[in-house]
Every structure is written in C-alpha cells, then in structure tokens.
C-alpha cells in the first residue's frame, strides 16, 4: 500500500524568542493529504501556516513530531523530499539578475536532469506558461504576473507529485491570481497532491477538496466544506471560520499553548 503524499503526526515547532520566551508556532498538528487532492490550510496571519509548510518542505526542522512526504520523513532524507516537492510562495523568490530561462536551467541541473531532457522540458514549460516572450529578460524587469508564471514553471519543472503553495495569490493582481487558481485546478487533474495555505476564504471555498482551519498553531478542524458547515451549523465559510476560532477560545482557554506566559 502506498503512503499518502503528505502526512504529519503531532508536528510541533517552537521558536525561542528573546522577549516572549518559547513560542509555539505549530502545536500537535496532524494532517493527511491524499493523491489528487487539493488541501487548503486556512488561517489568519501568524496562525502557523507558513511554519507548517516550511517544515514540510524541509526548510525548517520540526521541534518534535513527524512530517512525511510520500512516506519519507523530512528529517531522514530531506534531499529526497525536496526532489519530490514543488514549493512556491507569494513572494516569488526569483533571482532578480538571472533570466527566466537561466533560472529554469539552473534548477533543472540541480535536479540532475540531463541536458537534452532539460532543454526539452524548459521549451515545453516556456510554452505551457506563455513565458517565451520574456524568457530572456532579467527577472527584475518582469511584472508581478510574469514573475509568478516563471515561479510556477520553476516549481513544476521536475514534475513533482506534491505541490506546496504558501499563499500563492498574495500580492498578485486579479488576472494573475485567477491564472494561479486555474493552475492549481489543472494540477488536480494531473493527479498531483496540492497543499496550499491562504487567508482568502473565497479561494479556499472554490478550490479545496478539504480544508484545514488553523489558528495559533493548532489545527481546529479538518474536512470538506460541507463537513465543516455541518460541524458548525453555519452557511458561509467566513462564519464557519469565526465559529471555529471562537469555539476554541471559549471552550479551553487553558489548552492554549503556554506561549504568552510572561
């Protein structure tokens, strides 16, 4: 039996903050995403979304607990994990002084693709994402939308089975954001598992097969939109979200992580 593309067990991340002591950015997070599923991580700013995604993509090491990608523990073999993973964030993270083509070639080489195969793949991507027209200009001169397309091409260059997107539409204009949404949907058809974080409710509502609501480092609820509606008895996602957050606050103030004790 095949391991799920993404699974976390009791994932925790604690930061040392000189002013506030230990801060639990993520606490006991349990999550599982299936193949071909779009999973949305929904939460306000500072809820721990980015930390979770960074742990999954091996940039941060978990304090405790485990994160697995396709059955591989991120702490055991981060290289193998990175090889199977496409990561993308709202701040596109492109090298400003390189051209789009150079960036794609660079990452291709680092992924160990051989030259002929790499060239074919790059040409293919240039067409798929309509980058060709500006493929040889430096990234610093591209518009945000163009940059985002290059960034996407970079993330899917090695055709990863898992895509992790950190607030992919933040900072994009309307057209670029809708391009992004279309892209995420197209991935679902290709059978890729997509995990993305957002604080935009309409996006989550439209795209996600399942939604995880996260606040203050804890996963409050997981389920499809219908399940969440049923759980809270609210119609709109906005209300669902508010209900979930308030429920925790009133129910168990003692259960919140001892982060702010000072």
């Amino acid at each position: 039996m095949q391991a799920p593309p993404i699974r976390t067990t009791n994932l925790c991340k604690t930061f040392d903050d000189p002013k506030r002591g230990a801060v639990h950015a993520v606490c006991d997070l349990n999550l599982e995403c299936k193949e071909g599923e779009i999973f949305g991580l929904l939460g306000p700013n500072g809820a721990g979304k980015t930390t979770t995604l960074r742990m999954l993509s091996t940039i941060l090491a978990p304090t405790s607990g485990e994160a697995e990608l396709a059955g591989i523990r991120v702490s055991d073999d981060p290289l193998e994990v990175r090889r199977r993973l496409g990561f993308l964030s709202g701040s596109t993270g492109l090298y400003p002084r390189l051209t789009a083509r150079e960036i794609l070639e660079y990452f291709g080489r680092l992924h160990g693709m051989d030259e002929a195969q790499l060239q074919a793949r790059v040409e293919d991507l240039l067409d798929t994402f309509s980058i060709r027209a500006f493929a040889d200009g430096r990234c610093e001169s591209l518009s945000t939308g163009q940059r985002q397309r290059v960034s996407i091409a970079r993330a899917v260059l090695h055709d990863p089975p898992v895509l992790i997107l950190d607030e992919p539409t933040t900072g994009l204009d309307i057209l670029a954001a809708s391009d992004m949404i279309q892209f995420i949907q197209s991935r679902k058809d290709a059978g890729t598992c997509v995990l993305f974080s957002t604080h935009i409710l309409s996006e989550a509502e439209r795209l996600c097969d399942r939604i995880g609501v996260i606040d203050e480092g804890r996963l409050l609820a997981v389920g499809s939109l219908e399940e969440l509606r049923a759980q809270t008895g609210k119609e709109w996602l906005e209300d669902v979200f508010r209900a979930l957050v308030e429920e925790v606050d009133t129910e168990a103030p003692a259960a919140t992580p001892p982060a702010n004790e000072e």
């Binding site: 960074r54 993509s57 091996t58 940039i59 290289l79 193998e80 990175r82 090889r83 993973l85 990561f87 964030s89 993270g93 492109l94 090298y95 990452f107 680092l110 992924h111 160990g112 970079r154």
Partner: peptide, 8 residues
C-alpha cells in the same frame, strides 16, 4: 527560501 529548496 528558493535556494534552500534545491535538492542539494
């Protein structure tokens, strides 16, 4: 962040 994502 981008740099850290390469499989190296």
């Amino acid at each position: 962040e981008t740099t850290l994502l390469v499989p190296l």
